[in-house]
Amino acid sequence: MSVLAIGWEPELRGLLTVVIAVVILMGSVYMIMATNMGARLAFLVALAGLAGWMMLMGVVWWIYGIGLVGASPTWQPVAGSAVLQDTAALRSGGVLDVLPPIPEDANPTEEASIVGAELMEEGYVVLDPASPASGQAQAEASVLLEEAGAFEAGQYAITNIYDIGGDRYPMIEAGKVPGLTNESLDFLAFFHEPHYVLAEAAPFQQVRTEAGRAPVTPQIDETRQRQYVYMVRDLGTRRQPAVVLTLGGGAIFLALCWLLHRRERHLQHNLDENMAVTPA
């Protein structure tokens, strides 16, 4: 029965696989070294090698963002200003510094154009709809709109994605370093400014559906107010596990190296004393 349990339980089979691999791989190395240098010294040497290998593996994972990774970067709603249902809310929500003057006879489409011009005047840029950044922002904005009950699926379209911030610093300008042709070097840019996006959602016109006929192509309703989703970029913790592994493995490796060095000094000191007191 126990053999059947091991064969059919994926968790137990995986646990036993790891235990057997550790015992065979690390245990065999320790056993070989123990026959040559003793049990305690072989244990210190094997553990130091394991810690050093973990430190090097953590460095590689840290550089490339692979292996044991944390949370990936995502778009998160700005607290208190996630879904803005009118133009005035853009000013109170902190999106715009100045609310642009809007004519009384302007329809929602003209109002959205005036707001877009003001956003670009204040430093926002419009993302290319085909870019991956725009696709990620659209997907998250759609989730927030539907969770807030502003629209239902298929009743709206994300028309524009406005982007601002997210600059990294400190940057090294290529002109200050001889021989470099790139615009800048960013491998020392560990700090970031807040990164925001504003998604503009336009409602569709309500159309009647008839059984047996193809659905009508949705059209934007020019008489209904545009709504906006304000989001901030969460950079996540993708490299945090690798950093912890590198620092932890490095600390253990250095401590074990110091213990081995200390043992070697004591051994050499005892050998010198024995040689000094040995009669000629």
Rank of each mutant, 00 (worst) to 15 (best):
M37K: 12
A51E: 05
A42Q: 04
M1G: 12
F187C: 02
E110Y: 03
F43M: 14
A112R: 14
L144K: 05
A51C: 13
G149V: 12
V19T: 07
V3T: 06
V244I: 13
P215K: 10
H266M: 08
R213V: 14
L188P: 01
K176S: 12
R168H: 11
W258Y: 15
L56Q: 01
V277A: 04
G249Q: 00
I63D: 01
S81E: 03
I252C: 11
Q136N: 06
G116W: 10
P215S: 07
R224N: 09
T246M: 10
L16W: 14
I252H: 00
L90A: 04
R208D: 12
Y162A: 13
R265T: 01
V126S: 14
P132G: 11
Y169M: 09
I164F: 06
W62T: 10
A199Y: 10
Q76W: 04
D97E: 15
A21Q: 06
M57F: 12
Y124G: 06
T159N: 05
A157Y: 03
V83M: 14
E152M: 10
W75C: 05
E111W: 00
L260H: 03
L256Y: 01
H269F: 05
P178H: 04
G67M: 04
L254F: 10
P279N: 06
P108G: 15
Y196H: 10
H266Y: 01
A39F: 14
I24L: 15
Y230M: 09
G58E: 08
G116H: 07
E152C: 01
I252Y: 01
A242S: 15
G94R: 11
V18R: 12
L188T: 03
V232N: 08
G38T: 10
Q136D: 07
E183W: 03
L260D: 11
Y228S: 08
M231A: 02
I164N: 02
S72T: 07
G179D: 10
